[in-house]
Design a binder for these strands. Structure first.
Length: 408
RNA sequence: GGACAGGUGGCCGAGUGGUUAAAGGCAGCAGACUGUAAAUCUGCCCGCGCAAGCGUACGCUAGUUCGAAUCUAGCCCUGUCCA
């Protein structure tokens, strides 16, 4: 269908929409007024990772289309402890940790959104502010009567778990109620009219919509994004080193840049639409590049995403480092560096020290497998000693990971 | 509370006394090919040690045994059914 509102047109043409509750209704609303819309985020770690980037961009689009983004931090729900872990001993986070996490995560949002007091300025809220005050009995009275277990059992999140005969705790079961409560609360007190989220949030969103309607007759809307997978079927944002974190102190800009530079050919267009502000015509051009030409599009992708998330400077340095390292065979400023002691260092220690191997055994295997290089030359001798040198020595694991040994 | 099934390496999942650091798959790392892509093929994939080897590991604890992931007891946890 064709939309009249700038918001839905934007979301549609860039590929953010998976499901919507009432497309016409939302379209009409977005065409006539500023729509405050929110997305919820976890506060379990000091940084979000690439998996949350679609949602963050979605809030950015909302603002671009002239609406008001509301970032909901799950300070309250996190405080209860994340129940999804299979090991029960998932530790509960302290209030201080959660608050620190939220502060850290906020710095990233500030790059993507304009915060402030204006009508379309972004705001960040914390559901601990209202959930924390809520007594259990009160919660049961307020919202418990509006949920039937019959219906809750039909939601995918519950149904799948039961079908797979995996445990679902009562706490988890309650999450959907708490999340529904969030939506209602924001609708009632903040005029929020829209909740967005990943496709796995559909059930929660619908619950909030129902709750708002039943309690106060407020009409609110929901949009979900498609589940993002890479073209080869993997989850977004997993690499050798683990998650691709958005915060600089959790993942260096160069590694962040490399993540995008190494995107699958088939994902380039999709990623450009979702994660950059480039105009669609430009994206269409980049996406149509064939063969090795598409590498240029990947560089653009990496530059744009890094610029948004880490800033102009970080993107430039990362790109320059990549150019020098790969094209020039040299050393870029952003590569990891460790000290080359005056009396040299074993290759094994160097590999472990710089983080290319997690243990000495792993370093040895890397060497034995022919993946270790010193100044571009493959070394297969496990006992190899890197002699002291006046100049920087380049050390590599495979063809992509490079680092610098710098004389003290 | 009772009956039954189960808890294995990052994940899934074999293994029911030794030859098992534990099949197979996924994920991951490296090599070849290429374009810092994909697909494919090859090697690696608990830690320490140059090595022989040592240490740790199959829910927890205590046993049986020359020897246990495998047997016994107790406990904890999960699922299914019954109360």
């Amino acid at each position: 269908m064709t939309y009249t509102s700038a918001l839905l047109r934007l979301l549609d043409e860039r590929g953010y929409i998976h499901q919507m509750t009432d497309a016409e209704g939302l379209d009409k609303l977005a065409a006539t007024q500023v729509v405050p819309g929110y997305i919820g985020f976890d506060a379990t770690a000091p940084s979000l990772h690439v998996g949350s980037l679609v949602q963050i961009m979605l809030l950015r689009r909302l603002q671009q289309a002239g609406h008001k983004p509301v970032v909901l931090m799950g300070g309250g729900t996190t405080r209860i402890g994340d129940p999804t872990g299979r090991d029960e001993s998932r530790k509960m986070l302290t209030a201080e940790t959660i608050d620190a996490n939220i502060a850290s995560i906020r710095t990233v949002f500030e790059r993507f959104l304009t915060f402030g007091d204006g009508p379309t300025d972004a705001v960040m809220v914390n559901n601990h502010d209202w959930l924390g005050k809520l007594g259990y009995i009160e919660l049961l009275q307020e919202v418990g009567t509006n949920f039937t277990v019959n219906r809750m059992l039909t939601f995918d999140s519950v149904k799948l778990r039961l079908e797979r005969e995996q445990p679902m705790t009562f706490l988890e079961f309650n999450y959907m109620i708490l999340q529904g409560y969030d939506f209602w609360h924001l609708a009632k007190t903040g005029g929020v009219r829209l909740q967005m989220g990943g496709s796995d949030q559909w059930g929660n969103i619908v619950n909030g919509i129902e709750l708002s309607r039943r309690k106060d007759g407020i009409e609110v809307f929901g949009v979900t994004t498609p589940l993002l997978t890479t073209a080869d079927g993997g989850k977004m944002g997993k690499t050798a080193a683990g998650a691709v974190w958005l915060n600089e102190d959790a993942l260096p800009a160069y590694d962040f840049w490399q993540y995008w530079r190494n995107a699958d050919d088939r994902d380039v267009g999709k990623f450009l639409r979702l994660f950059t502000d480039l105009p669609l015509e430009e994206i269409a051009r980049l996406e149509s590049l064939e063969g090795s030409e598409i590498n240029a599009a990947k560089v653009t992708l990496a530059n744009e995403v890094t610029r948004l998330c880490r800033g102009e400077e970080a993107a430039r340095t990362a790109e320059a480092t990549a150019a020098q390292t790969f094209a020039g065979g040299g050393l870029g400023a952003d590569l990891p560096v460790i000290v080359l002691p005056p009396d040299g260092i074993t290759l094994i220690d160097a590999l472990v020290g710089i983080g290319f191997a997690a243990s000495r055994g792993e370093a040895k295997r890397l060497i034995a497998g022919g993946g270790a290089r010193v100044d571009g030359e493959a070394i297969t001798d496990e006992a190899h000693m890197i002699a002291a040198s006046a100049a920087d020595v380049r050390i590599s694991s495979g063809k992509k990971k490079h680092g610098v040994l710098r004389p003290a």
